[in-house]
Computed example of a mutant assay.
Amino acid sequence: MRTLITGTDAEGRSCVVSAEELTLDTLAPGFAMGVPYQTTTNPPPARPAGSAPLIDQGIAPGLARWMVVDLGPGSETPMHHTDTVDLETVLSGTVELILDDGAHALAAGDLVVLTGVDHAWRAGPDGCRLSAVLIGTPSPE
């Protein structure tokens, strides 16, 4: 499974800063585990300022919300940024994650860490279902 982690470049534009296959380490017979992402502070680091409109998720820094999102066939969201770190899993279908550095095609099983950067979604021809865990972040300073 592939893990994309977003961030910003030197000009503050949203981009993929890491795209790697997740390695699962065998810990015991029949049991393997991998860690695609972790934070090291509570609350998580402040999000970038963003230039697209903010969608205020209403989640205080350090608190979490888990949700499932269905995107209908060919649907698109406008470019936006959030006040959260979003841990997204594509459960079914296909979708493009649109960042300032272009479109990134995702399919079932792919993982994305959205660090509050400017982004949009464009669902594939059969739509897409995402599982998302949102963690509130502090405002940028």
Rank of each mutant, 00 (worst) to 15 (best):
M1V: 14
R2H: 15
T6Q: 12
D9Q: 09
A10S: 13
E11L: 11
C15Q: 15
V16C: 12
V17E: 07
A19K: 00
A28N: 04
G30E: 03
G30Y: 07
F31G: 06
M33G: 01
G34S: 07
Y37P: 00
Q38R: 11
Q38H: 11
T40R: 11
P43E: 05
P44G: 02
P45R: 14
P45H: 10
A46W: 00
A46Q: 02
A46N: 01
P48G: 05
A49F: 05
G50H: 14
Q57S: 09
Q57D: 05
G58V: 09
G58N: 04
I59G: 05
G62P: 06
G62D: 01
G62H: 08
L63H: 09
A64W: 03
W66P: 02
W66C: 14
D70A: 09
L71D: 05
G72S: 13
G74R: 01
S75P: 06
S75I: 10
P78D: 06
H81L: 07
T82Q: 08
D86I: 11
L91P: 00
G93C: 06
E96G: 00
E96T: 04
L99E: 11
D100R: 07
A103M: 13
A105K: 05
A107Y: 02
A108Y: 06
V112W: 12
V113W: 00
G116S: 12
D118E: 11
D118I: 14
W121Y: 06
W121C: 03
P125C: 08
G127I: 12
G127K: 10
R129G: 10
L130W: 06
L130T: 03
A132N: 13
L134R: 12
L134I: 10
T137Q: 08
P140I: 04
E141P: 15
